[in-house]
């Protein structure tokens, strides 16, 4: 093919190199994902909250029947003295048991933690707290689970950090472990308390 030589050979060379370039780029990306899986910075299963930086939805929940703690409404999350943690939990949820000691630690440190019992019978929720200790200063019941959906909750436990302006600053889906406390929650609490 004589016209082959007249066509720009470099263009053809670049074209032939494209697959390699694409494969290399993809490979780098996959490598970064695998590394991220190890460090936790990449998680294909996590769902971010749509409410970060926004105020929580408007809601008014009653306390579970038999509870002597104050209930929780959206108004209670506005104009706060210090950041609070809102925790969705349930007595039937196993990871909530794992999380519980960390919530108790927060209580001892004087961090207000507001609990919302998700799809739980009032007696069961109160029984859970009676057995394991109560970390909450306010307690509400969301038996139908509808307020949780307004918050964007997709499983329990799930926790939201509300700053003094009443905006959601951090959301954690899954149990707050000691590592999560040290790495994420405590630094954030310090930051938003200042």
């Amino acid at each position: 093919m004589s016209d082959e030589t007249t066509a720009n050979p470099w263009r053809r060379r670049a074209l032939l190199g494209l697959p390699l370039l694409a494969a290399g780029g993809a490979g780098l990306g996959f490598w970064a994902m695998l590394r991220g899986l190890g460090t936790g910075s990449y998680d294909p299963h996590g769902v971010p909250s749509a409410l970060l930086g926004k105020a929580p939805p408007d809601f008014a929940l009653a306390a579970p029947a038999g509870s002597d703690l104050p209930a929780l409404t959206a108004a209670d999350l506005r104009g706060l003295q210090r950041p609070v943690l809102v925790n969705f939990f349930a007595s039937w949820c196993v990871p909530c048991v794992i999380e519980h000691p960390q919530l108790m630690t927060l209580k001892r440190q004087g961090v207000p933690v507001f609990g919302i019992a998700y799809k739980d019978k009032p007696a069961d929720a109160l029984g859970f707290l009676a057995r394991r200790g109560n970390p909450f200063t306010r307690l509400a019941a969301d038996e139908p689970g509808r307020v949780a959906i307004d918050w964007g909750v997709y499983g329990v436990p799930e926790s939201y950090l509300i700053d003094r302006q009443g905006l959601i600053r951090w959301r954690w889906a899954g149990p707050i472990t000691e590592d999560t406390m040290a790495a994420d929650l405590l630094p954030l609490l310090r930051r938003y308390s200042a």
Binding site: V47, P48, S49, A50, P57, I149, W151
Partner: peptide
């Protein structure tokens, strides 16, 4: 639902 759960 988008307002609650985002693009996901």
């Amino acid at each position: 639902l988008h307002a609650r759960y985002g693009d996901f």
